Amino acid sequence: MRILNICAYTWQAGGPPKIIFDHTEVVLRYGHQVDILSPISPGEKPYPLPEGARLILCQRTPVISRFFREFSGELYQFLKQHAHEYDLIHCHGLWHFGVLAPFMIDKSVAKVITIHGVLDRWVYAHNNWKKQLMDRLAQKAYLERADLVQINNVDEQADVLRYLGHAHPNIVIIPNGVKMSDFTTLPPKGSFRQKFGLPMDRKLVLFMSRLNAKKGLDLLLPGFRDYVRQHPDTVLALAGSDDGYEATARQFIAQHDLSDSIRMVGMLTGDDKKAALADADLFTLPSYSEGFSMAVLEAMAAGTPTLVSDRVGFGEVIRAHEAAGLLTSLTPEAVRDGLEKLLGNDQLRQQVSKNATALLKAKYDIDIVAKQLLDEYTKVVRKK
């Protein structure tokens, strides 16, 4: 098969590029061709590319793309000239030009849309007027026309039903996966603390995600403040690129005199990310909304116990599988209590880590989930 993924394939885009990278490695091993078509702006850095795949970069159109997300005349022209060369076009997300353009141009090539959590009630409520405008520009109609809609969990199934007003006829639940072999060997303990000047003798709580309002930082920061007042032997590392919340976080840290207890270390990649997970006593993401959090999957794969909300995309699975992580409600008090429970019980953290690893090996290894999606690709192309 000749497969085209359309996504903002940059470090700034968050989880989808990592998901595409891991899936593409598996798809290439099965002998298929994968291209990635990505809008990009000056200053953005493309995400790494699996060997054997091709990345086509298209400049976003200035000014227009600020209001019409990802708008790119170059992207439109590429699709107009080359869409017919592919067996399947896979669009990631909703309400941006890269999802609309393939449907505007072509009716013959099979099209897949992955929702990536953007129909969640919390997400949908933000910039709602823009989304309603794009719905009138045929976003709903194009979602209806998709030959396959991939969702990550049953919550997203309900989101699609609410959005369309009825069930989509071609919908499949396939979760995100993680390459477990990437976390078999981790950097030596202490290397992350040493590199970033974090104390060796204090417990380390790690938040690793974009610094965005939806990630629950308004819950974590006050929750950790209250916890560290009673347990000053703990430090919180905030690892992530700014996505609108860094200034607020810095203001909170300064206002509450927490510069010794909360450190901002920026976005982590590669060995730095693995070293952070190896050093952390606890990973936390009390997010309001996630499609299916890669950050939580990676923490679990590294054996780091997790304290997360049930909105990370597989909260119910975590709850059902013998405490593979601790779930917190969306209040600062609940976050504080979760920190108390896990950081105060070494045996519980060890058990949570063990349960999480077993869960991921059974259900979320990338070889398992990527093959599931590839099988669905094959069905869709045959039908088309």
Results as ranks from 00 to 15, higher is better:
Asp159Glu: 04
Ala125Glu: 12
Met208Leu: 08
Gly98Thr: 11
Val123Asp: 05
Gln132Gly: 02
Gln81Asp: 13
Pro175Asn: 12
Gln150Glu: 15
Pro175Phe: 13
Leu161Asp: 06
Tyr124Ala: 02
Asn127Gly: 10
Thr185Ile: 07
Tyr124Met: 03
Gln157Trp: 06
His96Tyr: 15
Leu143Cys: 06
Ala83Lys: 05
Tyr76Met: 08
Met180Ser: 10
Leu206Pro: 04
Asp135Gln: 00
Val178Phe: 14
Phe103Thr: 05
Pro187Phe: 04
Val154Trp: 06
Asn128Ile: 08
Lys140Glu: 06
Gln132Leu: 09
Lys131His: 04
His92Met: 14
Ala146Ser: 14
Gln157Arg: 12
Leu137Pro: 01
Gln157Ala: 10
Tyr163Met: 02
Leu211Lys: 07
Pro199Leu: 06
Val109Gln: 10
Ser72His: 11
Cys91Ala: 15
Glu156Pro: 02
Met208Tyr: 01
Ser209Val: 06
Phe103Glu: 07
Ile151Met: 08
Gly197Gln: 07
Tyr163Cys: 00
Met134Val: 02
Lys195Pro: 02
Asn170Thr: 07
His90Gln: 15
Ser72Ala: 11
Lys130Ala: 15
Lys179Tyr: 15
Met208Asp: 01
Leu88Phe: 14
Val178Thr: 09
Gln77Glu: 11
Leu204Tyr: 01
Leu206Trp: 04
Pro199Asp: 03
Arg162Phe: 02
Ala101Glu: 10
Cys91Val: 13
Asp106Glu: 12
Gln132Ser: 03
Leu148His: 13
Tyr76Asp: 08
Met208Pro: 00
Leu100Cys: 05
Arg210His: 12
Arg202Ser: 00
His116Ile: 08
Leu143Phe: 06
